[in-house]
Nucleic acid binder design. Structure first.
Lengths: 125, 125
DNA sequence: ACGTAGACGCAACCGATGGTTGCGGTACGC
DNA sequence: GCGTACCGCAACCATCGGTTGCGTCTACGT
């Protein structure tokens, strides 16, 4: 099962980069692709692609199988699943926080600049 | 109204960094804060915080008002709104794609390792 | 069988960026 | 007026996305 533990952060980190997302996209579209093929469709070199693939691999999102002189990369659906869920979770969290902030801002505006007396919980680290 | 145009990519870019997210979190929790105050609760220096604030500012997510010798930063709910939506959008897109991939993988598994017959893409050789 | 071309890996290098330290300016409190 | 705290600027370092160049190995054509 290769139970990699993909933290939200690590995931976001891997997925944050737009190039990486594009690479992932292409792999998804092609099923199994070689770095060179990917690079052919992308605005940067094979080497760059290779590096991204390495990252994605370490993150457990893709895997590559050697076949003769080439290496075919494919995505690992299970892990991608985790990834997508994490994304959704983060998005939701954002939304919630936004909600809070919005109502708060409105309240503050309504009360006229209450001098920020909300030293509720500061959690460090 | 300062109608900054925040592209999904720019947004993700700004939000991608975990430190930046933490900073944003703190500002959200505090309403109006100075860089130094933020830095006090974060594992890095005031300077780093300042840089992040600059980025977030450029991205239109926060704004700072000078008050005497200190600068109070606060989030801009409207823009944050845009941000959250963008996040959700991206997440959704991911989810959809994941769905496709999953069913595909299952189908493949059910058929017993069909030798990757999805050459819908450039397969040079 | 051999030579060449294609696909990969490694390493050096470049520019941007997250992070640090150090310093100088300026507003505040006494 | 003096010290202190907050800020801004600049130099510096490490990492990272990306490139170029080179070496190696495999596959293919003749």
């Amino acid at each position: 099962m290769t139970r990699h533990v993909i933290s939200d952060d690590a995931l976001l980190e891997a997925v944050a980069d737009s190039s990486r997302r594009r690479v992932l996209d292409l792999i998804l579209a092609s099923g199994e692709v070689t770095p060179t093929a990917l690079a052919a469709e992308l605005p940067f070199t094979r080497q760059a692609v290779a590096k991204h693939l390495a990252v994605l691999d370490r993150a457990g999102l893709v895997e590559g199988r050697r076949t003769g002189r080439e290496v075919r990369y494919s995505v690992r659906p299970e892990h991608l699943d985790v990834a997508a869920r994490a994304m959704a979770r983060v998005a939701a969290r954002w939304d919630a926080r936004l909600e809070a902030i919005k109502s708060m801002a409105e309240a503050r505006a309504r009360l006229g600049t209450t001098s920020t007396t909300k030293g509720n919980h500061v959690r460090r680290r």
